[in-house]
Design a protein around this nucleic acid. Structure first.
Length: 491
RNA sequence: GGCGCCAUGGUCUAACGGUUAGGAUACAUCCCUUUCACGGAUGCGGCGGGGGUUCGAUUCCCCCUGGCGCUACCA
């Protein structure tokens, strides 16, 4: 394939979600694979629904993933402006061309009449659609209305018969009966174009080669085809990836929890994991590989691999993949990314001195391999930062209620006191000797000690943990344990 | 209601007429291990139904069913 020109054309009426971003991702992958241009175009034609901050968030999502656009806001390009609200003249000009060649007409019907009409159609179980009242208006009536300042829209005149056929790159040929299509509005009474119109005009002028957009647009594509035909233009390649569904199998939306794409960043997912996972929601390389670097993805991505059936978004596989990415990452990177989570949780202060910083980094490194998300670092490391332990009740009952435990703890304390150089090796030796002296072996020593020192049954290696915590804290915790867990044991 | 798209284990998917229907995830068990995680092994679990076409259908065609989408002066 030659160079491609693809566009991601969000409307800033809400926050970017998984589905939106996947579309952008396919645009970007195609652009990276074949070369060309990835264009970001803002479809801000619905002035009533604009959401402040939405555009910033969309751009932030793309930037976080490293999917920089070649043309668009902030970077400009040969087809400026990239905001539809700044291209109104273009649409007006195109609309009057369509009026001139008989493909479109003025409509002065009020919203009330339209609603009434639709209500009646529904009551009669008839297909809804504009009844073409204004199509029959005479030139005089039209001019009169315009002179009188009657608000109007411009509608596209859909052919009464025949079919409109187009080829979707993932599903093949799709046919629609023209008579079932509505005379849709192309220019609204506020002078703004509708999506259908603006996107066609812009895609043409911006020389878009592939329109990639969600499957929900298939039903609108015949309208777009008709528009291209009336303008005398060639349509782009249509690519409609399948929808991404929530676990209830409906189109992913607000009620499915994390709608904001950036929520995944905030929960501690890595960008490469998101790219890897989301790319696979609706695309398959054709073989069994499913762990990809971004370069591999670029290399292997192809429209022919886009599947034609919807995918349910299941976070558990994403978590697995994110864990893989975390483990494959350099420790320093993960540590840097984890620190903000610890700060947000109040476990560490905003300004760390060198010693504290070193301690934090050591602690995070200890649990890196266990993390599925960066946010989990908080739970995994809490006992390294807080001296009041949250004792795991089951663990206390299982390991601290045994008769030998108090004596064991005392003996461990005694030997630990003598340790010079509180390293994992030295600590292990001391603990093991303490156990041996009382004829208590292996797990019977380690589990109670872990409970006493961390409050938990699971964690990093016990001796490393103790070495990192340091002699003082370990001994204090050992001394306090029996007191602090007495209630639980008695219960 | 009309129109359109889709249909392989719970989930993501492979298979382009002939396979014991493959992989991943999740779950379970076991091994490894001081625990957890990782890793290794094993197990559980699938072609929505009915007609055709064919020597032979998961695969091609039709019908049904089911799911989803669209049906705005929203995108």
């Amino acid at each position: 394939m030659n160079q491609v020109r693809v566009r991601y054309a969000p409307s800033p009426t809400g926050f970017a979600h998984i589905g939106n971003i996947r579309t952008a991702m396919y645009d970007w992958l195609l652009r990276k694979h074949f070369g060309g241009s990835f264009i970001l175009r803002i479809e801000d034609t619905d002035q009533a629904r604009l959401v402040p901050g939405a555009l910033e968030e969309i751009m932030e999502s793309l930037r976080w993933l490293g999917m920089q656009w070649d043309e668009g806001p902030e970077v400009g390009g040969p087809h400026e402006p990239y905001f539809q609200s700044q291209r109104l003249d273009l649409y007006k000009e195109a609309a009057s061309k369509l009026i001139k060649n008989g493909s479109a007409y003025y409509c002065f019907c009020t919203p009330d009449r339209l609603a009434e009409m639709r209500k009646n159609q529904e009551a009669e179980k008839k297909p809804t659609g504009y009844d073409r009242k204004c199509y029959l208006l005479s030139k005089e009536e039209i001019n009169q209305n315009i002179e009188n300042g009657v608000p109007y829209v411009i509608r596209f005149k859909v052919p009464d018969s025949g079919t409109t056929v187009f080829t979707d790159a993932v599903r093949g040929e799709i046919t629609f009966e023209n008579k079932l299509l509505d005379d849709f509005v192309i220019l609204k009474s506020d002078g703004y174009p509708t999506y259908h119109f603006a996107s066609v005009i812009d895609d043409h002028y911006m020389e878009i080669t592939h329109v990639i957009r969600g499957e929900e647009w298939i039903s609108s594509t015949p309208k777009h085809m008709l528009l291209y035909e009336s303008m005398g233009w060639n349509p782009p390649v249509w690519v409609h990836p399948p929808l991404i569904l929530g676990t209830d199998k409906s189109k992913l939306s607000k009620r499915h929890g994390a709608v904001r794409f950036l929520d995944y960043r905030d929960k501690g997912f890595l960008p490469e994991a998101m790219i890897n996972f989301v790319a696979l929601l609706g695309w398959s390389p054709g073989d069994d590989q499913e762990l990809f670097t971004i370069d591999e993805l670029i290399n292997r991505f192809d429209i022919s691999g886009i599947v034609n059936h919807p995918a349910v978004f299941d976070v558990s596989k994403l978590e697995w993949m994110n864990g893989v990415c975390i483990r494959n990452s350099e420790p320093d990177r993960i540590i840097d990314l984890c620190i903000p989570f610890l700060k947000d949780a109040g476990l560490i202060s905003d300004a760390l001195n060198d010693n504290e910083n070193q301690y934090v980094r050591t602690v995070i490194a200890l649990v890196k391999e266990k993390l599925k998300t960066l946010a989990q670092v908080v739970d995994h490391t809490e006992f390294f930062f807080k001296n009041e332990l949250k004792y795991d009740e089951k663990g206390v009952k299982k390991w601290l209620s045994k008769d030998y435990v108090p004596a064991l703890i005392s003996n461990v304390i005694k030997h630990l006191n003598d340790v010079i150089g509180f390293t994992a090796e030295n600590v292990e030796e001391a603990v093991r000797i303490a156990g041996d002296e009382l004829n208590i072996s292996g797990g019977q020593v380690i589990h109670p000690i872990r409970m006493a020192v961390t409050g938990r049954t699971v964690g990093p290696g016990l001796f490393e943990t103790m070495a990192v915590l340091g002699k003082e804290r370990v001994i204090v915790r050992l001394k306090n344990t029996m007191n602090e867990t007495a209630d639980i044991i008695a219960d």
